[in-house]
Nucleic acid binder design. Structure first.
Length: 904
RNA sequence: GGGCAUUUAGCUCAGUUGGUUUAGAGCGCUGCCUUGACAGGGCAGAGGUCACAGGUUCGAAUCCUGUAAUGCCCA
């Protein structure tokens, strides 16, 4: 008897095996003679906790890495985290505030000490969670974008790009976050429709009495920074005013009325106030017309001295106040409710203010072309391909914009630029900058004369170097030469531009010199392939996110279903690039998402199924006998089926059809192995099993475990060890993946046909209410095809066993009191142990005949068409002819049967 | 406004460059089945005019055009 529990318990095994793998350092990679297979993880934020998107993304990477490892490649999956400057700084500032410490009271060094302390405490949480999922990362290689070596690389690259003229400092309209007190990149601003009000304000015309021009604005407080009123040159309503001046209400500043094609005559009144300091478009118009730039806002979003009025008031308070003042002074013509798109900071949710600031930029035009070439040439391949379209729309010359890389934060790599009066000195160290400054000025300056830029670099500026920097490529490219280019990048399409494109650019910029000529000839792209995963969404197709509260708790799911179950659930609904609707239900009353999932449950049940197959085998008593014919056939068939499936899996993996590959493996194990193979070899209750059959079964089972291992690593490792006693180091995780080889397709086909015969018998039993344990007689019509089929050794016995027959014989005569069915071209008669209901049987046969006739008619129509026969490929025509022959034989059989039954 | 994608069974999705017996899977549903590896199970079944309208073709779920709905990206 077996001592194994009837249910598989993931909690017990998962921790045990992960620990074992770690002890054995199976995930660790060092360069050697083997072919490398490398992946760098998309580094999660240090502020993050594991969510469904991470689970999907990392499960996929783990599958690819584990498969490569099983294939004997030197697999290396580099993990790590990203410092996420804005998000982390916001968290640290908040935490300090809770302790009563203000950031402004701290020095930069003190603040960074707090931030690193925070990172050490929380930054590794997500990596620990990935271990629970089974991620086979090389943890000894764990990197962090702000650790010293990676920071050195960032500084080096910044200086180099500056020296090449690809990084510059300039005055630009930028998105200003008045809460975080930093500039944001366009991508960090989220636009959403919000309710607001449109105010119609009238400005007096200078030197005229009771002559007005009315404009419409949603931001009346900004009129204090107005530099002009613009109208469309074609707008006759205002033609007489162009060239005159309007008086800005309350502050009585005269501004010119100008004509510009940008103005939409349909919007508002057709007259537009121009505020170059606070609107992107206005700024451009201002440039064209040489207008003054009046900045009426302070850093923190309060009104500045330049506004003259409401100085020090927050812009929203000022809005209320100015509306009252305007109304009192008779300048408010009317107000309207209005919906417009408002930009908010992704991190702080503050309303973003367009603002003119001095920032650092990367010139993107040429880089963009390089990034496009890399994909167009096929050096970087996208899965699915159509993401090239989105990639192109970001990078093409018309759309691409220079990248603002400075952030007014402390958490990040500080920009290596030093200022002396109006001059800028960019160098890797202060000393080097000083050297340059001395040379340029001819003065004997000291370090205290120079002032370093206060800002840090955008986090993407460091993560763009990730595929190179995690191998310390800038410092010593030896490891890089082995692992680079990485094989594949697995990431979400939402960062195709922010991250994917920039890594490609950096790869082409730096890999050639780092790799050296010989190695670079093999490719300088950071990754050969990119697999884009979809977003994980809920039933209402909303992206799962912490803020919406619609994401199940990843770890709770693992607790409930086991990591294998969750991996199965995630993957079974994930095809490349398509968003996946995760099936977690919501509580009807509380509307909260439940940590449940039908798909994960299916994965858990699958583990249990395999576990019980194991219990079956372990319960067998061995016998010295030769295997019986059925067992021999079963083993042969299963081995060939396995080869056939291996071949199919290779194709699926090559196309990243991982979800299909999983389902294919699932069916091979559940349907073919459990439902058919094991039932075929299973002995009578309590009877022993030929040792050879047991050995064949164990051999097949362990190969199945290796095939499934990349998808469900824990249960497969456990069963692998339960199947045999294993030597030290003989583990499923490092076993050999089955290699495809020629297989006997004809034999597989014959067994498949036998399965349909068994199914037909079962169907007849079901229809007639005949119990499975009642043995029946089955007769095959004596013809070439049935003889051919039944001649396969063991096949007849297999049908007898699986359909629980008393006997299966070939006959030349009609069998009385039987129901018939067709399999292929052969007719079978199942003798009943009860009176046949002739009328019922006639109806069934008539229905079947009608179907076959309809089918044949369609095939004949095709074959009767000369153009089909002449134009279609020979193979296709031959297949149609075969269909016709089969169909006609079936019709003949059915007609004979109907006649024999005496049906009308 | 420009673009990308999606629309196939009650639900979630496959369908590999147009042809593999008049469309497949999983879940759910229906019926039957418990001394036997597994009820987290077994056997079988029902369920789809492939969003709609045109077109190309010997042949269309698959290609083209248009329409509609949904999601996303950009402005």
């Amino acid at each position: 008897m077996t001592e194994l529990s009837t249910r598989y318990n993931p909690q017990e095994t998962e921790e045990k095996w992960y620990g074992h793998w770690m002890d054995k350092r199976y995930f660790h990679s060092e360069p050697d003679d083997r072919e490398p297979y490398s992946i760098v993880i998309p580094p999660p934020n240090v502020t993050g906790v594991l969510h469904m998107g991470h689970m999907l993304n990392n499960t996929i990477q783990d599958i690819l890495v584990r498969k490569a490892r099983l294939e004997g490649k030197n697999a290396c999956w580099v993990p790590g985290t990203d410092h996420a400057s804005i998000a982390t700084e916001a968290k640290v500032v908040k935490q300090l505030r809770e302790k009563g410490i203000k950031k402004s009271d701290l020095s930069r060094e003190e603040f960074l000490a707090h931030a690193f302390e925070w990172k050490d405490k929380y930054g590794g949480i997500i990596l620990d969670q990935l271990k629970k999922l089974g991620a086979s990362c090389d943890w000894e290689r764990t990197r962090f974008t702000m650790e010293p070596k990676l920071s050195d690389a960032v500084i080096k690259v910044f200086v180099d790009l500056y020296n090449k003229g690809k990084v510059y400092r300039g005055l630009r309209m930028t998105n200003w976050d008045p809460e975080a007190l930093t500039v944001l990149s366009n991508e960090e601003v989220l636009y959403k429709e919000e309710n607001s009000r449109l105010y119609y304000l009238r400005y007096a015309i200078e030197g005229e009495t009771d002559s007005w021009i009315t404009i419409a604005t949603v931001r009346p407080e900004t009129i204090l920074g107005d530099a002009a009123i613009a109208v469309n040159p074609d707008d006759e309503r205002f033609a007489h005013l162009v060239g005159k001046r309007a008086i800005v209400p309350l502050i009585n500043r005269p501004v010119p009325i100008i004509a510009d094609r940008y103005v939409d005559t349909e919007f508002g009144t057709g007259a537009l106030k121009i505020t170059p300091a606070h609107d992107m478009n206005d700024y451009e118009i201002g440039e064209r017309h040489g207008l003054e730039v009046i900045d009426v806002l302070n850093d923190d979003g309060t009104m500045s001295e330049a506004a003259q009025l409401f100085v020090g008031e927050d812009r929203f308070t000022a809005r209320k106040l100015i509306v009252k003042a305007l109304e009192a002074a008779g300048h408010l013509a009317k107000t309207e409710d209005y919906r417009n798109k408002v930009g908010r900071s992704e991190r702080t949710n503050a309303i973003v203010e367009p603002r003119l600031t001095l920032q650092w930029f990367v010139k993107m035009k040429a880089f963009g072309q390089q990034a496009l070439r890399a994909v167009k040439s096929g050096e970087v391949k996208f899965f699915p391909e159509h993401f090239y379209n989105m990639y192109h729309s970001w990078l093409n010359e018309d759309n691409i914009r220079d990248w603002c890389i400075s952030r007014q934060l402390w958490w990040g790599q500080r920009i290596p630029a030093w200022y002396y009066e109006d001059q800028i000195f960019v160098a890797e160290t202060a000393e080097a900058a000083l050297e340059k400054a001395r040379e340029a000025t001819g003065k004997n300056l000291s370090l205290t004369d120079l002032k370093q830029d206060e800002d840090v670099l955008d986090t993407w500026f460091s993560s763009q170097l990730w595929p190179i920097s995690v191998f310390d490529g800038f410092e010593n490219p030896e490891a890089l030469r082995y692992y680079y280019p990485t094989n594949v990048l697995v990431t979400g399409w939402d960062i195709i531009f922010f991250w994917v494109a920039r890594m490609v650019i950096m790869g082409y910029e730096y890999a050639p010199e780092l790799l050296g000529e010989a190695k670079a000839a093999e490719g300088v792209q950071p990754f050969r392939e990119v697999y884009f995963t979809g977003m994980v969404r809920d039933k209402e197709r909303r992206k799962m996110s912490k803020s919406l509260g619609n994401s199940p708790d990843a770890l709770a799911l693992i607790d409930r279903y086991g990591a294998d179950g969750v991996r199965f659930g995630m993957l079974s609904s994930a095809s490349a690039g398509n968003d996946i609707i995760f099936d977690a239900p919501f509580d009807k009353e509380t509307k909260e998402v439940l940590n449940e999932s039908k798909l994960c449950e299916q994965g858990r049940n699958f583990c249990n199924k395999m576990w019980n197959a194991l219990r079956l085998i372990k319960g067998w008593e061995l016998a010295d006998d030769e295997p019986d014919a059925v067992s021999q056939l079963a083993a042969q068939w299963m081995e060939h089926k396995l080869l056939q499936t291996t071949e199919k899996l290779e194709q699926l993996f090559a196309q990243y059809r991982l979800s299909e590959a999983l389902m294919t493996t699932y069916k091979l194990i559940w349907d073919d192995f459990c439902s058919w193979y094991l039932e075929m070899v299973k002995p009578d209750y309590g009877a022993p099993v030929s040792a050879q059959t047991v050995e064949a079964t164990v051999r097949i089972f362990e190969q199945l475990m290796t095939l499934l291992h990349p998808f469900m690593p824990f249960v497969t490792e456990e069963i692998w060890h339960q199947l045999r006693s294993r030597a030290e180091g003989e583990d499923c995780v490092v076993s050999r993946y089955p290699v495809s080889a020629p297989y006997n397709a004809a034999m597989i086909g014959q067994v498949e046909q036998a399965k349909t015969i068994v199914a037909s018998v079962r169907e007849a039993r079901n229809a007639k209410g005949i119990k499975m344990k009642d043995e029946l007689n089955l007769f095959a019509q004596n013809d070439e095809s049935s003889q051919d089929l039944l001649s396969l050794n063991g096949l007849k016995a297999m049908i007898v066993k699986m359909a629980n027959l008393a006997k299966l014989e070939v006959t030349g005569e009609d069998v009385p009191n039987s129901v018939s069915f067709l399999s292929g071209q052969s007719k079978f008669f199942l003798e009943l142990n009860q009176e046949v209901d002739t009328a019922e049987e006639c109806e069934r046969l008539t229905k079947e005949l009608a179907y076959q006739e309809g089918f044949v008619a369609q095939v004949m129509k095709k074959l009767g068409n000369e153009r089909f026969v002449n134009n279609a490929p020979e193979q296709v025509v031959a297949r149609e002819r075969q269909k016709l022959a089969d169909g006609e034989a079936k019709i003949k059989n059915l007609k004979e049967e109907l006649a024999a039954m005496g049906c009308a």
